[in-house]
Write a protein that binds this DNA or RNA. Structure first.
Lengths: 236, 236
DNA sequence: CGGCTGATTGAAATGCATCAAACAAAGTGG
DNA sequence: CCACTTTGTTTGATGCATTTCAATCAGCCG
């Protein structure tokens, strides 16, 4: 336990892409002002509607960010991993959080106070530009996802989500997705019912596109999935 | 015609909220570097995939911003009006445009070169913060819309879109929506088929929620629409 | 072991898309 | 000025993807 605490204090943010444009001096004070925490799977980082005191940089682990819709049904907005930052949107707008963030793989997070963020934006224009570009990238993805959900079938979207997960979380030597999701989480990402996900996964397995072992998903035919995800829903 | 040209040159951006944080000096050079254009309904401002040289501030008129999905079907991302800025997302990311923008009500636009934008971000941190907050607001809306499309029925979404249009474009004395859309555009906003929109509009009319006269939509029962829309987040 | 959560399958209900046809309004050109 | 095309609107009929409800099963844990 003592070891763990010590290693949390030793973490430096200098290696993370988001802070690349910081001067030596800025990094030193940033590392002084940040607070790192180790969190277990299932922990809630912040809840929709809560007041935020800063944003978080993910040092390790995976986080799901979701909105709560009708009847409390989750809509997962994104999965964030090492190097990603979360909570900055509501923080910058100075609103209460409009999403909930939950650890789905044991994580270490760095909390950076709002004041520190504002200070960086004020003093370091290169940092501002980095920040602007990160949000722009996220907005682009959001717009693309709107188009997808509005126009594609569940089948197409599931194939697409599997491919996106592959891009973001890689495969191990065995071609297995390195992120473990429940069927329900997958459904809440794709925007459909759990049962539909189960049926479609089983169909994909039957068509030799994937293999399943509990929550492990092995991607064995990327081209096939790409075809399903992109083009018409003409079933070949 | 000469009059028109002269009045275009006379436009100043000082009144627009986006440029509020600019100094006198910055405004002067901005007004020198900008270019204003008058555009008719149907004109394309920029196309998906094209290279952008700057962003645009809408002085007057209405613009629809959409992505082209499967079979060229439009997904309308937003309607922008006076004071809004467009094209800034792809510009900041230094990518080709990921949306198309088209005039749907005769407009006057101001083009601001990329260099000018970068200069402002570099020199004026207060402007950067404004910019960050604008993008954050747009991202918030996008995330909310993802949740809506994923979880709500077409019927609920149509009611919601009508209410959103009411918020953004107001009603005239007659309670008629001050934005004129084809059924297809409405469908491409809601994310459904044109026929579905027609049927639902006609149902809403039957239930005395709205009145229809060609493309004019008169909102006569806001509460009823709100109830159908299943709005969780009260907007004022 | 019983109680829990998550996964699976089946059957039935339905919302919505799609296709087709007719109609209206608004140009276009001879 | 009238036939003619075009574009947008409307309505009906049909099919299907997906949701919903219900039941069972598998795995895990104290």
């Amino acid at each position: 336990m003592k070891n763990l605490t010590e290693s949390l204090d030793d973490i430096t943010l200098s290696g993370f892409r988001f802070f690349r444009s910081l001067s030596e001096e800025e990094l030193t004070s940033l590392n002084y002002e940040k607070t790192c925490t180790s969190l277990k799977k299932g922990s809630i980082i912040y809840k929709e509607g809560s007041r935020l005191t800063g944003f978080y940089c993910i040092i390790k682990g995976i986080v799901k960010v979701y909105k709560t819709g009708i009847d409390g049904k989750e809509q997962i907005i994104r999965f964030s991993r090492k190097g990603d930052i979360i909570a900055y949107r509501s923080l910058l707008s100075q609103e209460t959080a409009c999403t909930t963030s939950e650890i789905i793989e044991d994580a270490i997070l760095c909390h950076v106070p709002y004041k520190t963020l504002l200070n960086l934006i004020e003093k370091n224009s290169s940092f501002s530009l980095t920040m602007l570009r990160i949000i722009c990238a996220e907005l682009k993805e959001a717009n693309e996802y709107i188009t997808d959900i509005a126009q594609k079938t569940v089948r197409e979207r599931l194939a697409e989500v599997l491919l996106l997960l592959k891009e973001n979380f890689d495969l191990d030597a065995d071609k297995t997705l390195q992120i473990s999701l429940t069927r329900e989480e997958l459904a809440n990402t794709v925007g459909t019912a759990t049962e539909s996900i189960i049926r479609l996964l089983s169909e994909f397995r039957h068509d030799n596109l994937i293999e399943l072992q509990g929550r492990k998903i092995k991607i064995i035919n990327i081209q096939g999935l790409t075809k399903i995800a992109n083009l018409t829903n003409a079933r070949s």
